[in-house]
């Protein structure tokens, strides 16, 4: 029953593929952030509900992340739980 023991070179090539992909996303993001051909369909003055603290993704984060940690300790999965963004978009 061979599991993962033989993939010694796997990490190296997986990492460089991921690095390349993330670099591409970053550059694309920089490009698109600079020129804004897409008009925001939710105007800044329409963001009242999004600015409400109950819509915040990071509300009570110190407790939420401890709770995530408990799950990751007791279960076999981890990752993809973070999120940033939303809010009033001020400034």
């Amino acid at each position: 029953m061979r599991a993962d023991g033989e993939q010694r070179s796997g990490r190296g090539s997986a990492n460089s593929r991921v690095r390349g992909a993330l670099l591409a996303v970053l550059a694309l993001g920089a490009a698109l952030g600079g020129c804004t051909p897409i008009e925001p369909w939710v105007k800044p003055y329409e963001r009242e509900h999004l600015a409400d603290p109950i819509m915040s993704l990071g509300r009570n984060s110190i407790a939420a992340t401890y709770r995530d940690h408990v799950f990751e300790t007791r279960e076999g999965s981890h990752g993809a739980t973070g999120a940033v963004g939303g809010g009033c978009g001020c400034n």
């Binding site: 460089s16 593929r17 690095r19 390349g20 992909a21 670099l23 591409a24 970053l26 550059a27 694309l28 920089a30 490009a31 600079g34 020129c35 804004t36």
Partner: peptide, 17 residues
């Protein structure tokens, strides 16, 4: 992949706001 990323990065710098 890295070459493609480099091309996109160069294009990004060239695009005016």
């Amino acid at each position: 992949k890295n070459r493609l990323a480099a091309i996109i990065a160069a294009a990004a710098l060239a695009l005016p706001a």
